[in-house]
């Protein structure tokens, strides 16, 4: 039957054709083709590794950043607390000092007022004594200028 007719020549030509094709592709085409594929795969793998590394570093930086922020916040809180405490103490101190100063001022003013009063009274007594001497001179007609007269006039003014 022609369908199954043996043709060794064709079979040998099949091997030769395939052999030539395999040799040429193996020698010239596939090294370049597979080399290019491998090179690209390596490049992609390297890029993926780099991207992973960058992602890892970014995560580390984010963690570090979050840590720093947390630390800064806690430091800020503690500073704020400390400052509040110090300000309270300072406030109390200032208040105390102000109260002290105010009481001092009041005391000084009182003292001064008393002094002023004393000096006013003294000056008034002098005036009264002078007036009494003048009036007595006018009434009696003799001079009341001696120290004894003066002391008498002063005693009189003080007794008023």
């Amino acid at each position: 039957m022609e369908l199954f007719k043996l043709d060794p020549g064709l079979a040998i030509w099949t091997w030769i054709s395939f052999g030539i094709l395999f040799f040429i592709l193996w020698k010239f085409a596939f090294p370049a083709l597979i080399g290019n594929i491998k090179e690209r795969e390596n490049l992609i793998a390297k890029s993926v590794d780099n991207a992973d590394e960058i992602q890892k570093r970014l995560n580390d930086i984010n963690t570090e950043y979050a840590g720093i922020i947390k630390k800064a916040k806690s430091e800020a809180d503690s500073i704020l607390l400390e400052t509040r405490k110090e300000s309270d103490i300072l406030k109390k101190k200032l208040l105390l000092k102000a109260e002290q100063e105010a009481s001092d001022i009041v005391k000084n003013t009182k003292d001064k007022m008393l002094e002023e009063r004393e000096s006013l009274i003294l000056s008034l007594q002098n005036e009264i004594a002078d007036f009494a001497c003048d009036v007595s001179e006018k009434i009696v007609g003799s001079s009341f200028t001696s120290d004894k007269d003066r002391d008498w006039a002063m005693e009189l003014a003080k007794s008023l």
């Binding site: 043709d7 064709l10 030509w13 099949t14 054709s17 395939f18 030539i20 094709l21 040429i24 592709l25 010239f28 085409a29 090294p31 370049a32 083709l33 080399g35 290019n36 090179e39 690209r40 490049l43």
Partner: peptide, 30 residues
């Protein structure tokens, strides 16, 4: 030459031509 042998040789020539004319070493963007 028979038709089947011609087909074999034609296939080999076609494949070799396709590969040798298109594939270049160090091609980054094929």
């Amino acid at each position: 030459m028979s038709m089947h042998l011609l087909m074999l040789l034609l296939s080999v020539a076609l494949i070799i031509g396709l590969f040798l004319f298109s594939v270049k070493k160090g091609e980054r963007k094929p």
